[in-house]
Design a protein around this nucleic acid. Structure first.
Lengths: 254, 254
DNA sequence: CCCTTTATAGTCAGAGTGACTATTAAAAAA
DNA sequence: TTTTTTAATAGTCACTCTGACTATAAAGGG
């Protein structure tokens, strides 16, 4: 540790940073992945949209700060916020990411089912859901954070039961499939999806009686709830973007 | 953002934090996963071993700080450090993780081939490789960080070409298999491993001529180098820890 | 020269997968 | 009411991938 800073670091000689959390809160709505954004009321980036977030307070962890901000932004009760899936993504530390001062930000992703009332929180006036992809350029490095968050979520659908976090407590396999198709941006074969999901032990479990969801058009679907596992064996791999080597090993051009 | 801190945060009214990086530097040696640790010379945790790390300086990113620390600890040239794989793991923010002050630490994992001369850096006296698992309790929350790092590396071997980072530029499939077996702590069937690796497009490519590694006992092995891909399709899944549901759906006890 | 060691080739049954077709149960249209 | 439409679910089939093997090849040690 020959950094100029004394080894064991002297508490009075450290470079001061501010630490914030930024939240990428996702939901699946209208066959599109949506993210919760807030409009900035002042410079820098006044009028631009940004991920919700805020300071980590002196006596809380970043996880606690993220849950606190999430409760404030979404208006969800502390019970709901306490149980939902919150995942630390990565930390963004570019020295110039905030033009005013040195701020490092710990980014989180949160997944919500499509809520009937999006948020009822305090300063909800300037907050709304945006379809990812149709957001303009965001404030700070939030475009980058959002892109990273999308990538991470898409990847984790393959080998975790994360998709159920987008669904209500009881859901149909069609709804679950909709989540996969929306996040991955692909269409999946329905019978095959069904077979694969049901073949993963502990992914979903049928709701006991024969209750079925009605309201839609066709045959009513059976209801399931999330099973006991968090990791999927075998994984649900997304359709391969077939690899083409840059230097063809052999064979003719098509 | 109704946190008590003014929206858009006033640069003069933020809770001050120190930001550090901690490095989990791994190598595979003697059929065991090893990690680079440094011995602490002063309190707190004097005499305990810890992950190398240090402050993020005012004008550098955490990535830059991690590479700088890595160069200092390993004695590798800046060229080698500049190209090697450095992966941000997660950020540790417990308010009490450092008894002296509020420090958040961005943890990184780095992978090195087994170097003939471990490190030649400056204060290398108190740094050495430890087989993971035989480290005593480490300073701060470094046991937790190390465990998280091991988990992450093991998981990424499944679907990325990360294992080649543990190998020299040219390596045999036996050496690559050794990496998988060591990190996962399992034994793999050699012909099957070979078939799967060669079936992943872009994972490894044979070194052109018929050069072969000699020195060992048996038949000399062909040499390969890392191919062009970073992600593995299909993935090399580790042997399943077969899932047993807590409430047996049906059937008799064995 | 034989034996051990390691790399590599090949076999084979079973599981998993993509692309289908068929059937069922409901709502909407006629 | 009957027919049509829609969606869920069941099932088929060829193909691939996988784990568990056996067989052969090429080196060094005794």
């Amino acid at each position: 540790m020959s950094t100029g800073v004394p080894e064991g670091y002297d508490p009075h000689a450290f470079p001061p940073f501010a630490v914030t959390v930024d939240l990428a809160v996702f939901t699946v709505r209208d066959e599109a992945l949506h993210v919760l954004l807030v409009e900035r009321g002042q410079d820098p980036f006044q009028g631009r949209w940004a991920l919700p977030g805020g300071f980590v307070l002196p006596r809380e962890s970043a996880d606690e700060a993220a849950r606190r901000e999430l409760a404030e932004e979404t208006g969800l009760g502390p019970d709901a916020v306490g149980t939902l899936h919150l995942e630390q993504l990565r930390t963004y530390t570019d020295p110039d990411r905030d033009p005013r001062m040195r701020v490092v930000s710990v980014a989180y992703a949160a997944l919500l089912p499509d809520l009937p009332e999006p948020r009822g929180g305090g300063d909800a006036a300037s907050a709304r859901w945006w379809a990812t992809g149709s957001t303009g350029p965001l404030a700070f490095d939030h475009d980058r954070i959002l892109a990273d968050a999308r990538d991470r979520i898409g990847a984790k659908l393959e080998y975790t039961c994360l998709a159920t976090e987008f669904c209500p407590a009881e859901f149909t396999l069609g709804e679950l499939q909709q989540v996969y198709e929306t996040v991955w941006g692909v269409e999946l074969d329905r019978p095959n999806f069904r077979r694969k999901v049901l073949n993963v032990p502990g992914f979903v479990q049928p709701v006991d009686g024969p209750p079925r969801r009605t309201g839609g058009r066709g045959k009513p679907a059976a209801l399931y709830r999330a099973g006991g596992t968090t990791t999927l064996h075998p994984p649900l791999l997304r359709p391969q973007p077939t690899y083409v080597p840059l230097s063809r090993p052999e064979g003719r051009t098509p």
